[in-house]
Nucleic acid binder design. Structure first.
Length: 909
DNA sequence: ACTCTGCCCAGAGGA
């Protein structure tokens, strides 16, 4: 049976004399998991149940011999899983102990990647450095990736030359940045491919082989995930681009293969043979011991190796759970042979970390060390949240998961169609309501119903409506799609923070930490002649030698100001990076910029970097295509004077090779500090534009990431900031509340026309035709709600009637927007109102505006709940309309909070 | 208690 639970106290490790001699044992007090679903977990295929019988009381699990090493890692509160345990009666109590078939897994829901384990076995410090500073663009890595892709193609039956041609073409941009020519790269790949082909031929001659390539595997039991290069007859095959003339495979390569063996074991395999394919070994190289010419090395993976791998994995999981930083002493690697030695010493020196390699250089100032510590923790908190999302893949039932919007279930599989290159196009019919987080272009786990234990594939969504089209390596009879969680964003945040602190120049850090005041050059030019603050903002942005901060409340022409500033920079010959957190914000800013840049620079000197699915269709012509001739691709990017990309893309390998004079970050109040750093790290100076009175960054965990760099710098360097104070959007009556409540009364209409705008200005609309209660630009409709928690059908019905009234007064449906706090209420309202009325959450309405806005508060009785606590959300909701705003809600509930009460008074006037 | 966007996933190799 399997035992799973939470460590309930201190672990006792000691030696005892047994009939086999001296043995080590560890006694772990364990509170068995009370989650009933645990019992269904099939884990390993021996039919055991996964949980200890009915109890909440603490029991004891004895871990024998080598497992005591994992026991030493345990802290109270950690999760523990022991497979194939035996039950023992001791002093009338039921206890458990490991058997010869047991595995001990620390924090099993923390999914460790195979690469992590491979790095860790070499040196835990190497694992840490990889995570912290990332791997820069370099040729050996790109070539390795290419060889793997070609290998995969060969296994799927693609023609060799065709594959090489296509794969090299796809990597044009990266190869160009590395200064490689296609002909030379192809030639090198051919050499590796010859070894692969020769080996494949051997296999075909001798027996029927069954092959799988690039299989993504997740183990719920061992807490490991990874992608096997290939699986032959159920056994892992690892491809290596390098040379190895020794008889034995490298140890870390064996460990990697053993990881896949564990993963395959959980998926029903039972193998003890691993194959490593060193494709640089050629016929000219003779194995020094065996004289063997083939590149393939087969080896046996014994029980001991597999268990050792799980113990390694436990070390990582325990360290990540505790939030520790490895020193290198955990391993017996020799630092003098390590090619990361210098980096390791510098990092430990700068961050004042204990390290086996020793320290070089001077430690960062205390405040920077403290900053590093705080943000390292915060980012790792986020990472743990991503890990919890992985765990939900098996902890949630399909229905729970679909409710969570992270999956589409009960699809009806329609057909499979082979594509060129051996991939497949799969089609399924979406039977349910398609209200999920999944979007076109996303990578998902496509499965036959169970993404972890069943057959599943990493697939890309090509089309998503009633009929779903995906592409994948294997023809899964897909009936379910799951979000595949990714640590990519977290990884990039960490690297961005590392770069800002360890690679950033000193002057930049003086500014970020408030040790110096931002400086400005004097600029005489007038950029905008009818709006002083906008002009001041452009002047500051252009003249800043360090940074400028532009605070732009709703409707104040933030986007125009940015575009004007960038134009001025471009005219001065500067290279500019335009960034924001979301693709939508980047595209909006770029759209305004293109208008400004007409006649200033050629269109082809403006480049949008990002994925095809992320970029808005009308910006597609500016998108940097990665595939193509290397020289040509790299010229397009280097020649660009303006590059636009999300902050996440700014952290990509390609973007990190780029340098700019200025980085301009829009919607900067929605960005975490490390997120902002990803963009500004690439430039000499920066301009942040945003409004910290609107919504803050979206983060998974409650931590230091919730305050933006923008907001912090506005406080730290008020003299670098300027607030745009004239708004071009709202009727005066509408803007009054937000102005007083959020902007100290400083926000005012830009012109008398704006102040006086009403629905009457719109063609064919007459306010007289509205009920009297709606004739004022701001009105309140008191609805006693239906008392349900996240929806309110009474409000929804009333809103439908309001929309009819506006239509009757001559408004187009497309001129009306409805905003609600909860997604559930958004879908409730959507069922009541016509399709062409925009209905969305407050959060998603940020950044846009409408002639008429109806707000559904969805609260009866009281205003309790986190969504109402952040007043910035009301600021966003109330500042979306131009000409009319209708608040719909329960007056009694709204009056229970002072801010909402003031809002009520204003609306009812 | 709720809100929710990014990202080619994980791994590619050097000595």
């Amino acid at each position: 049976m399997h035992v799973r639970g939470t460590v309930a106290g201190e672990v006792d490790v000691r030696s005892v004399a047994t009939s086999y001699g001296e043995s080590e044992l560890a006694e772990v007090p364990l509170r068995p998991a009370d989650d009933a679903r645990n019992g269904e977990s099939p884990a390993r295929g021996d039919g055991g149940t996964a949980t200890v019988a009915d109890g909440r009381e603490t029991t004891t699990v004895t871990l024998w011999n080598k497992w005591t090493e994992s026991a030493e890692l345990l802290e109270p509160g950690m999760e523990l899983l022991v497979t194939n345990a035996k039950e023992e009666e001791y002093q009338g109590e039921t206890q458990y102990a490991t058997t010869g078939d047991s595995y001990v897994v620390v924090e099993p829901s923390f999914l460790v990647s195979v690469t992590s384990i491979r790095n860790w076995v070499e040196c835990p410090r190497l694992y840490y450095l990889n995570k912290l500073s990332g791997v820069p663009l370099n040729y050996p890595v790109v070539k390795g990736t290419l060889v793997h892709e070609v290998f995969g193609d060969l296994l799927r039956g693609r023609d060799l030359e065709e594959s090489i041609e296509a794969r090299v073409e796809e990597r044009g941009l990266q190869l160009g940045l590395l200064g490689e020519t296609p002909a030379a790269v192809k030639e090198e790949i051919r050499e590796n491919a010859t070894a692969i082909e020769g080996w494949l031929e051997q296999g075909r001659l001798t027996e029927e082989d069954s092959w799988r390539s690039e299989q993504l595997l997740i183990s719920e039991t061992f807490g490991i995930r990874g992608r096997a290069d290939a699986v032959r007859r159920g056994a892992p095959v690892e491809l290596k681009t390098g040379k190895n003339l020794k008889k034995e495979p490298r140890f870390k390569d064996k460990v990697q293969a053993a990881c896949y063996a564990l993963l395959l074991e959980e998926h029903g395999g039972d193998v003890d043979i691993g194959t490593l394919l060193y494709t640089k070994n050629s016929a000219l190289d003779r194995n020094e011991e065996t004289g063997d010419l083939t590149p393939a090395k087969e080896f046996t993976m014994g029980d001991g190796l597999l268990k050792y791998v799980v113990r390694l994995r436990n070390e990582i999981a325990a360290m990540e759970t505790a939030g520790d930083i490895p020193t290198g002493y955990e391993a017996d690697a020799k630092c003098e042979y390590c090619f990361e030695q210098d980096t390791c010493m510098v990092v430990s020196g700068r961050l004042d970390q204990e390290s086996k390699a020793g320290q070089i250089g001077q430690s960062l100032p205390d405040e920077e060390l403290e900053y590093f510590d705080r943000f390292y923790r915060a980012i790792e908190d986020e990472r743990r949240e991503v890990h919890r999302e992985y765990a939900k893949l098996w902890e949630q039932t399909a229905e729970e998961r679909a409710d969570d919007d992270r999956a589409l279930i009960d699809l009806e599989f329609l057909e499979k169609r082979p594509l060129e290159g051996g991939r497949w196009e799969l089609r399924a019919h979406n039977t349910g309501g398609a209200n999920s987080k999944l979007r076109e272009g996303d990578l998902v786990l496509a499965s036959d119903g169970d993404p972890v234990r069943g057959s599943s594939e990493l697939a890309r969504i090509e089309r998503l409506d009633d009929e779903i089209v995906i592409t994948a390596d294997e023809p899964v009879e897909v009936t379910r799609l799951d979000v595949y969680p990714s640590e990519l964003t977290t990884d990039r945040l960490l690297v961005a923070m590392h770069d800002a602190l360890l690679k950033g120049d000193d002057r930049r850090k003086e500014i970020l930490f408030g040790r110096a005041k931002p400086a400005f050059d004097t600029i005489e030019e007038t950029f905008i002649d009818n709006n002083d603050r906008q002009n001041e903002a452009v002047t500051k942005a252009v003249g800043a030698t360090d940074c400028a901060l532009i605070h732009g409340p709703p409707g104040t022409g933030k986007t125009y100001t940015i575009a004007r500033a960038i134009r001025a920079m471009v005219e001065r010959g500067e290279r500019v990076l335009l960034s924001a957190f979301t693709n939508r914000a980047v595209d909006n800013a770029l759209e305004a910029l293109l208008e400004q840049l007409e006649d200033v620079i050629d269109e082809d000197r403006v480049v949008r970097v990002g994925s095809e699915s992320g970029i808005r269709d009308d910006m597609e012509p500016y998108r940097l295509e990665r595939a193509g001739d290397p020289e040509d691709r790299v010229a397009t990017l280097q020649n660009a004077q303006v590059v636009a990309a999300t902050t996440s893309t700014c952290g990509s390998r390609v973007m990190k090779e780029q340098a700019f004079d200025v980085a301009l970050v829009d919607e900067a109040a929605q960005l975490t500090e490390p997120g902002t750093c990803a963009a500004i790290n690439l430039a000499e100076r920066f301009v942040l534009v945003g409004d910290h009175e609107q919504l803050p960054p979206v983060v998974r965990a409650e931590n230091d990431l919730t305050e933006s760099l923008f907001e912090r710098l506005v406080d730290l360097h008020p003299e670098a900031g300027v607030m745009l104070d004239r708004q071009y959007r709202m009727n005066q009556r509408i803007q009054a509340f937000a102005s007083n409540e959020f902007y100290d009364g400083q926000l005012r209409p830009a012109t008398p026309d704006v102040a006086a705008r009403t629905l009457d200005d719109l063609e064919g609309v007459s306010r007289d035709r509205l009920p009297e209660s709606l004739q004022d630009p701001v009105s309140f409709v008191d609805v006693e709600g239906d008392r349900s928690q996240y929806t309110d059908s009474a409000e929804a019905a009333r809103i439908a009637a309001l929309i009819e009234a506006y239509e009757a007064a001559g408004l187009e449906r497309s001129e009306i927007g409805v905003i609600a706090p909860f997604r559930a209420q958004v879908s409730e309202i959507s069922t009541h109102v016509p399709d062409d009325v925009a209905v969305d959450t407050v959060d998603r309405f940020q950044g846009s505006s409408q002639e008429v806005i109806v707000v559904s508060f969805t609260a009866t009785g009281s205003l309790e709940g986190p969504i109402f606590e952040d007043y910035r959300r009301i600021n966003v909701a109330l500042t979306r309309p131009k000409r009319a705003l209708v608040l719909v809600g329960d007056a009694a509930a709204l009056a229970s909070d002072p801010v909402y009460e003031r809002m009520l008074e204003w609306a009812r006037r």
